[in-house]
Amino acid sequence: MTPLLEVRGLSKRFGSVRALDGVDFDAAQGELTGLIGPNGAGKSTAFGCIAGAMRPSGGSIRFASQEIAGLAYHRVARLGVGRTYQIVQTFADMTVLESVTTGALLRHPRVADARAHAEELLAFTGLAAKRDRLGRMLTIADKKRLEVARALATEPKLLLLDEVMAGLTPAECRDAVALLRRILERGVTVVMVEHVMEVLMPIAHHVVVIAAGKTIFSGAPAEAVRDPGVVAAYLGPPLEAAS
């Protein structure tokens, strides 16, 4: 079976800076693929290119066997790619319910249908009690949750999560992991950028490591921590030495 997402030779230049310089990876249908790498490796830029927020300078992005590189942002969303942002981008003056309804309107053009769908997702993501709060009044954890609910409301085949755990307390992280498992159970394919390795390792089916704009590893999580290239680029000193 072909992977849902195939990224080949993805590159992105900002003037003379090469943020991405040949990133390759696949995301298999129904799996959680973790995208990791040191700060500034280009993970968020890769997300931006896949989601259509940025136009890649080169390479190919195939989603459900269709080339999407360079497609307009809203078109990529329409094809079934949902995303969250590293720095949360909520609709500040809309309530939680309104924000998620806005997402649901993509597949349910009638507001009443979209609302019903949004209510369901609020229950699913645990935001039901805060449905009438304004986006800007939420805590960071709830804003991130809201972004997930909003993206899910577009009924994506592929969900791109950009550091949804960053800045959360351990308890909030546990909730987020539980939510992530429920999302996977729905059959949504997830690609996730994450800094908190301990969180990612047990739930990821597959890990891709990016360093300096290139893919340097792709394989099982357990192997990633043993790969010398990854260890050198990202994990610092060998784990054995640390423990």
Partner: peptide, 22 residues
């Protein structure tokens, strides 16, 4: 739908595009 979309675009055009709003 138009009203929801306009408010979303006003609040954050990038996030609006990410949920498929043209």
């Amino acid at each position: 739908r138009l009203g929801y979309y306009l408010r979303a675009l006003r609040a954050n055009h990038a996030a609006a595009a990410s949920v498929g709003i043209d």
